[in-house]
Computed example of a mutant assay.
Amino acid sequence: MRLRSIFTTVLGAALLAVSVSTPASAASGRFFYDYVTVEGYDATGFLTNPADDECINLPGVGQENPEPGHTPRNRTDTWATVFTGTNCEGDSFRLRPHTGGASQRLKVRSVVFG
């Protein structure tokens, strides 16, 4: 009888730990973008399983880099809205889930999913 109680307690604690450690809502997949580094090299940045409803400034193309990112490709399962400025400001463009993408002409510095 006591062994069953201990097992139930341990199982409950394990399930609680798993449910607390997983994000409440996140896009599944990757979001890609190309950019030129401050040193002048071509690079590809990406976000893996980004959080929903949270503005994300894209690494490598923030205010420290005068060149914005370009050619965004949304391979997540959620709509992505890209912005020309940091902090999800400026002009925006929506990219559909899984296959959404844009040409090199679309300049980006931040994105929000959802």
Rank of each mutant, 00 (worst) to 15 (best):
G90A: 02
R2T: 14
P23C: 05
K107V: 07
I56R: 09
G101A: 01
L106N: 01
S110T: 10
S92V: 01
R73Q: 13
S110G: 02
E64R: 06
E54G: 04
P72A: 06
A27M: 03
P72R: 04
A13G: 04
N74L: 05
A102W: 07
R30N: 12
T78M: 10
R75D: 07
S110K: 01
A51M: 07
T22N: 07
V18P: 00
G69P: 14
E89R: 11
Y33D: 07
K107M: 04
A13L: 15
T44E: 00
T37E: 12
D42S: 09
P50Y: 11
T71Q: 11
L47Q: 04
T44N: 08
C88V: 08
P66G: 06
R96M: 11
V82A: 01
T8C: 14
S5F: 12
N65C: 09
T37Y: 09
N65D: 11
T76H: 02
T22I: 05
P59K: 02
L3T: 12
H70Q: 09
R4A: 15
H70N: 14
A80L: 07
D77H: 04
D52G: 12
R75H: 14
R73V: 12
G45L: 09
R96C: 10
F32H: 13
F113I: 07
V82D: 10
T86V: 12
R96G: 11
G90H: 03
Y35H: 04
E64I: 09
K107L: 08
H70G: 12
V36T: 13
R2M: 08
L47N: 00
L11P: 02
A26Q: 06
G62R: 11
R94P: 09
P59W: 01
G69Y: 08
F32G: 01
T81Q: 09
L11F: 15
T99M: 13
V10H: 01
L11N: 10
V82H: 05
I56H: 06
C55D: 01
R94T: 06
R4N: 10
T22V: 15
E89Y: 01
R94M: 10
T44Y: 02
Q104E: 13
G12M: 11
N65E: 06
R2L: 15
T44P: 03
P97I: 00
D53K: 07
T86Q: 10
T84G: 15
T76S: 02
G85D: 06
S25M: 12
T81N: 00
R96W: 03
H70W: 04
V108T: 03
T81V: 08
L3E: 10
F7C: 14
C88Q: 08
A51C: 07
P59F: 05
G85C: 04
S28I: 12
R73K: 14
S103T: 15
E39R: 13
G101I: 04
L47D: 14
